[in-house]
Simulated scan of single mutants.
Amino acid sequence: MSGGRTGTVVFACMDADTLGGIQRVTHTMAQGLAERGREVHVIGLHRAEKPFRYVERPRYTSHVIHRAPVGRLSRLGRRRERRALGGLLREVGPGFAVLSSPSVVTRIGGLLPERLLPIGQYHGSYEHARGSWHLGSVTGHYGDLEKAVFLSEQDAWLFSEHALLPNACSIPNPLPVWPSRTAELTARRVLGVGRLEGVKRFDRLISAFAEACGRPVPGGAGAPPDLAAARREAGEGWELHLIGEGAERGRLLSHAAECEVSDRVVFRGAVPAARMADEYVGGSVLALSSEHEGLPLVVGEAASYGVPSVAFDVSSGLRSLVLDGRTGVLVPPADVTALATALAGLMASAEERRRLGAAARAHVEAFRPDRVLDRWEALFDQVTR
């Protein structure tokens, strides 16, 4: 098989159409490689409960193996899966199979024909893998693949050293687009983007936002009276817009009421991918309060529109996006008061928002779709030499 831009690329996910970072990256890469002339297939082992459309006019082919959402499979279900995957994979041409997670590697890796060279991705951080079953699975299975791709150089090094992976390398996730317009950063709006699920800890973001606006936070020490008064003045008119949907919505509504910011927290629900540009342009700060992340795409997307971020420092992937004090602000994980202080500082200073936002946009040019796809093409060439 020749190198360059020939050869099929198959992307495989547990489900390919859920609203999530892995899925967004998969569809961005699939469309980009298809536009470069490759035959591309996206396989979802399961159908999403609420399918989300990432690309309006895909130039790749999508497949769903099971109509049911992700869950335990019966013995009959596993046999059907092997039969369906076997038939599908026999029909595609020679090339590469990009397996998006440890679960996908164990489900599909052994079914790949020799003409599809397996490449494993891991979208989390080494810190998160070490605290879960992921590290054992990556250690046990990724070494048998052609390449194991991680999100940052530090993650690749840590997996190489501690999981003994000689095939580890790093390629960051691509931004969906590189925008021509940027935010003015004058709107009094903080953005929180992601699924309303426990791991995103939007409850901590709501608490931090309330504290940044000088409101008392239940169970917290609260800011000194003079600082609280100054924050109330600087935070006048600011809103927190949560973009996404999920099971935590009711609890988060209640928490906003407890923090006395029900009038300031706007639950936007899921926003179509095609309209997210308007959301970023209409924001002035992005806040990330997750317990763990790999390389959070929303931070890179915001930066591409010139919007700076404040975030809990939870992974090396995040640190590759946010250079603390230069392109945004990082604070210790789970430190709500520190997050509130960082938010308050940016809410109070348009000049600081513009300084960090301009630097953030310049920094994330490395994550432009064309540049990341070039790195994947170089990896494909390397694998086939």
Rank of each mutant, 00 (worst) to 15 (best):
R67G: 15
F202D: 06
V265R: 05
F159W: 10
H141M: 02
G21R: 07
A129Y: 10
L85R: 09
T327D: 09
R115D: 09
A34K: 07
S2G: 12
E184S: 15
F367E: 00
R361V: 01
S132L: 02
D335W: 04
G269D: 08
A34E: 10
Y122D: 09
E56N: 04
V193P: 02
A129K: 12
A187L: 14
A303E: 05
A212R: 03
S290A: 06
R232Q: 04
F159E: 02
H66W: 09
H123R: 13
A16C: 08
L356M: 02
A277L: 01
A360V: 06
P113E: 11
V104L: 12
R231S: 03
G71F: 02
E351L: 09
R59Q: 14
R249A: 14
P332R: 03
L117T: 09
S132I: 00
L205D: 00
R5V: 12
V199F: 00
E91P: 04
E35R: 11
L76W: 13
L112V: 03
L356G: 03
E233Y: 12
S62K: 15
A378R: 13
A303Y: 02
E293C: 09
R78T: 08
L165R: 14
D263I: 02
F312W: 06
A223Q: 13
F367Y: 07
R326L: 14
D278L: 07
D324P: 13
R83M: 07
K50T: 11
R53A: 12
S315P: 02
S180F: 12
V10H: 03
V105W: 14
S207F: 05
D203G: 15
S316H: 13
R90D: 00
E258M: 13
A378L: 05
F159M: 13
H46E: 08
I206K: 06
R75Y: 06
L164K: 15
E239I: 14
Y60H: 11
N167M: 01
E236K: 15
S289G: 03
F202V: 09
R83N: 01
S262Y: 11
P296F: 11
G32A: 14
V92M: 08
P218Q: 10
V299D: 07
N173F: 03
V314N: 08
Q23F: 01
V336P: 07
P333W: 01
G244D: 02
R90S: 07
H255R: 13
L88W: 05
V322K: 08
R353N: 10
A342L: 10
E365G: 11
Y142A: 12
R354P: 07
I43N: 08
E161C: 13
G37M: 05
R67Y: 05
P308S: 05
V281A: 15
H292D: 05
R36Y: 06
L19D: 11
E161I: 15
